[in-house]
Design a protein around this nucleic acid. Structure first.
Lengths: 207, 207
DNA sequence: CCTGTCTTTGACCAAGCGGTCAAATCTGCA
DNA sequence: TGCAGATTTGACCGCTTGGTCAAAGACAGG
């Protein structure tokens, strides 16, 4: 397999299929619970063939995580310091919720990694992630200081948004078990979270 | 080993130690990531000796989960329909947060199981859990209907409390990575969540 | 102090696992 | 079409793992 050369058509295709299969299996069973054979089968390849494209099982996993982190932070990155505070934050909540709804496997993969202490991501968390969160927390703090948002701790506000949105993807079986088969968790969640954060962030008018 | 007889002193002791060791290892590495040898060593026993008290690795795990679910629901059970609504709900939030703070391994064990689709708990979730949540959601709905709490969907309110409290235990490495080593996540979380829910649940006074 | 039961252990096994390798086959380009 | 490099595969390897077993050792009641 070429190393520095541009990837061939087959390489691009196989690698994509392996990532897709890896995401499916890893998100459902975790790193240890997944087997190379199962991923290979899901990708429509033999095991040695898969190992021809990714040297180790861990290589698939870390490749997935690295790509994931970037996509996962985009909604926060998109928070516009020049925009209208309430609209910006509600848009962020919506984007994050839609990300969890449309990419639950990614959400669970990430959750599993953090839950186990982020053995393969520790550096990224206190690096890029932290810088981005600090920057955006600063923006939010500014909005609160000028009275355009109800005051609270911006870091914990961000945690709240993460926790509430990812909950519906990561604990989906629990949510469905409690709500029953009739209700639509995602639609209800969106309504609930929008009113939740609207109420939470609306500044009290001084009388 | 006796089956129906009362357990001997040694049986009680060994079983307790195995559960403690199992909780430690399972919560850190998940079911598949944990090995019987490691649990045995953590319990100060040889592997065959451990298997003498629990027939299989899964038996330890399910025993842990069954005990956990009960303890995990106690705070919700303690919600008093006769009490003052706001005080009751804030007390619930605090109890749940303290549970996550004081028993993070239990929280992570539970989270890991749900994350993987609750293969060993499915029935319990749509059984006891659902009934209890429905009952308490009814109580909260009553409080909201009489205007003593701001209205919202009680089920999703309960999900919010779960998500926000468990987040600090389950994603502790992420929280610490973002906040840095100086800050005290748990103390901040308690202040934040109390003001968060106070604000959220206080009924707007009609003028 | 003796005996039946409970407890502990070293040795072992079969299955599953991640990964290797040499040989076979395919692909794209001159 | 020929061929060099890319791709695929069956067979295989060494290691880990959950679990077994027979025999040895500890314990408690009489």
């Amino acid at each position: 397999m070429a190393k520095d050369e541009a990837p061939t058509r087959i390489q691009r295709d196989r690698r994509r299929r392996i990532r897709e299969a890896g995401l499916e299996v890893f998100s459902a069973k975790g790193f240890r619970g997944a087997t190379v054979d199962e991923i290979a089968q899901a990708a429509g390849l033999s095991k040695p063939n898969l190992l021809y494209y990714f040297a180790t099982k861990e290589a698939i996993y870390t490749d997935l995580l690295a790509r994931l982190l970037k996509a996962w932070l985009d909604p926060l990155r998109a928070l516009d310091p020049e925009g209208e505070p309430m609209a910006e934050l509600l848009a962020y909540v919506r984007r994050k919720l839609h990300l969890a709804r449309d990419f639950p496997r990614e959400s669970r993969l990430f959750a599993g990694e953090i839950l186990r202490g982020a053995p393969l991501m520790g550096a990224d968390l206190s690096g890029d992630l932290r810088r981005l969160v600090d920057a955006r927390a600063g923006v939010i703090a500014g909005w609160m200081a000028t009275g355009r948002l109800a005051p609270s701790d911006p870091h914990h506000l961000i945690f709240s948004i993460w926790a509430l949105t990812q909950h519906y993807a990561d604990f989906e079986v629990q949510v469905r078990a409690v709500l029953g088969d009739v209700r639509d968790p995602w639609a209800e969640a969106e309504r609930h979270l929008v009113t939740h954060f609207t109420r939470l962030l609306t500044p009290l008018v001084a009388i």
